[in-house]
Design a protein around this nucleic acid. Structure first.
Length: 473
RNA sequence: GGCGGCAUAGCCAAGUGGUAAGGCGACGGAUUGCAAAUCCGUUAUCCCCGGUUCAAGUCCGGGUGCCGCCUCCA
């Protein structure tokens, strides 16, 4: 079995083949930095991170680029209006550059807290204006774009494949119905590559005039090309990016280079909250701080957001997060139990007992992820291993093999506590004291010690084979 | 109006046309000084209606509900 991935472009699962053997070039549509990333954003980025991790698990060298959009997003009207970052800047009465810088920093902090692997590059739109202009010039020369005043538009009708990704037909886009059709455009669906506006705060001088700024879509075409080359393997984003954003990117890049842009277009579904859409008016747009404020750990949120299949809607509630935390605790426990069984504690007498079952779990795990990154199926295999070890069906060798595999599986999920935790001598002394108290049936004292340690985050369990402890959370 | 997706137990969530993974929770029992952990057992005919088929959660048609896009958006 090899990795198969669903390609939005062809609407089917396809065998994954890279342009260059062993190397994956992947571009992830990143955030617009005018506010804090919410858990919906995080789900999408977490999907990209998981995909990368699965590719790396398989031995690919992944060149991952995730952009930071710090200019160019337009409000209100498709082609004219206020930049989102500028709008926020006005609201806060701040310099737009300070706004985007601040949010970019926070974004990286959020990713780090959630255990993201670092992308090879996080290019900023504002730092790639020349690269954008280069493409715009090329498109003008090739006749795919036209200039009217200080504006440049991409002429959609010149690119026959426009609409292939989204399934939209240019003539049925209903353009002009809800948006005011701008007179200078040759077709309502034509989109801006470059705009001029004196009012704009973030602007650049070009041959189109002194007050220009780029259209939204051009940045990704330029940054992807700059950092990964004309052709890439994977381009990801949320499902909302399919149209118009990615449709336009394809048009621009392919018209410019004359070659296929990305081999695989992969999109994650939206996160829902309370079974419906997330929205400010419902007050259910949460970010990492909201999650931390409720006493949850970042990795618990991570587990919660990756536990479903990326191509199906996923529901989030605080109750579900709590359930996720409980499930994750049991995965941590799996590691602990395997480590013990590998040492002989609770292991089956014959060292190779259960070795076959462990092999099957690994095989199923990999088959699940090979099948369009089916995380829930892969997770189920981990829980099956837990049942095996709890039932004492694994011998020492099998447990050691399972432990090695589970640790490796965590390279994909990045959620488990796989390092052995240690307690200090003082804690060990208290545990011994409690055992002594129990022996003399001084339960008041033994419970006092147990409660004290619990308050320190250490849970004691009196098993038939002796007392064991674990750290909480 | 156009394009696309989803609908599986109390809550999540898999599922290749052949008889419903897994997680969390709940209930009953065992074990325990108590608790926790663990063990045993119980807990779904898959939104509705019709059709194809020997056989459908899985295919087709029609509903209903929710989500996304067509306007910035993960």
């Amino acid at each position: 079995m090899t990795f198969h991935v669903y390609n939005t472009l062809t609407r089917q699962k396809e065998e994954f083949r890279t342009l260059e053997p062993g190397v994956v070039r992947m571009y992830n549509c990143g955030p617009t930095v005018y506010g804090r990333a919410h858990i919906g954003n995080l789900r999408s980025f977490l999907f990209a991170d998981t995909l990368r991790r699965w590719l790396e698990y398989q031995g690919f060298a992944v060149k991952q680029v995730m952009n930071i959009t710090d200019v160019g997003h337009i409000l209100a009207d498709a082609d004219e209006g206020e930049d989102k970052i500028e709008a926020q800047a006005r609201k806060e009465n701040k310099d737009p550059w300070a706004i985007s810088r601040g949010w970019t920093e926070l974004f990286h902090k959020d990713l780090a807290a959630l255990g993201f692997r670092k992308a090879a590059a996080n290019p900023k739109a504002s730092e790639h204006i020349p690269e954008m202009l280069e493409i715009i010039e090329g498109l003008l020369q090739k006749g795919y774009a036209y200039q009217t005043g200080g504006d440049v538009y991409f002429e959609v009708s010149k690119f026959a494949r426009y609409g292939r990704l989204s399934g939209n037909k240019v003539e049925e886009l209903d353009a002009g119905n809800r948006i005011e059709v701008r007179e200078e455009k040759r077709h309502p669906a034509d989109f801006a590559l470059w705009k001029s506006d004196k009012q704009h705060l973030m602007k650049w001088t070009s041959r189109f005039g002194p007050d220009g700024y780029p259209g939204w879509h051009i940045e990704c075409s330029a940054m992807s090309r700059k950092h990964l080359g004309d052709q890439i393997d994977i381009h990801t984003g949320g499902e909302d990016n399919i149209f118009p954003h990615h449709e336009c990117e394809i048009a621009q890049t392919e018209a410019f280079t004359g070659r296929a842009f990305a081999s695989y277009w992969v999109h994650s579904k939206f996160l829902q909250v309370d079974g419906g859409k997330m929205s400010k008016s419902l007050g259910n747009v949460y970010n990492l701080d909201d999650v931390l404020a409720r006493g949850f750990q970042p990795r618990q949120l991570r587990y919660c957001l990756i536990r479903g299949h990326y191509r199906a809607p996923l529901n989030f509630t605080w109750e579900i997060l709590k359930e996720s935390a409980a499930a994750l605790e049991n995965l941590d426990d799996l590691v602990v139990r395997l480590r013990k069984a590998a040492r002989g504690e609770g292991a089956s007498p014959s060292a190779d007992d259960g070795l076959e079952a462990v092999g099957e779990a690994k095989q199923e795990f990999e088959a699940a992820l090979d099948d369009d990154l089916n995380v829930p199926r892969a997770l189920a295999e981990l829980f099956k291993l837990r049942t095996l070890v709890l039932e004492g069906q694994l011998g020492q060798s099998a447990a050691a093999a399972a432990l090695q595999f589970v640790k490796k599986s965590n390279e994909v999920f990045g959620v488990m506590q796989t390092e052995e935790e240690l307690i200090g001598d003082d804690v060990q002394r208290l545990i011994d004291e409690r055992q002594a108290a129990r022996k003399r049936k001084d339960f008041k004292e033994s419970d006092r010690i147990r409660d004290y340690l619990l308050a320190q985050g250490i849970v004691l369990e009196d098993t038939p084979s002796g007392v064991s402890w674990k750290k909480k959370g």
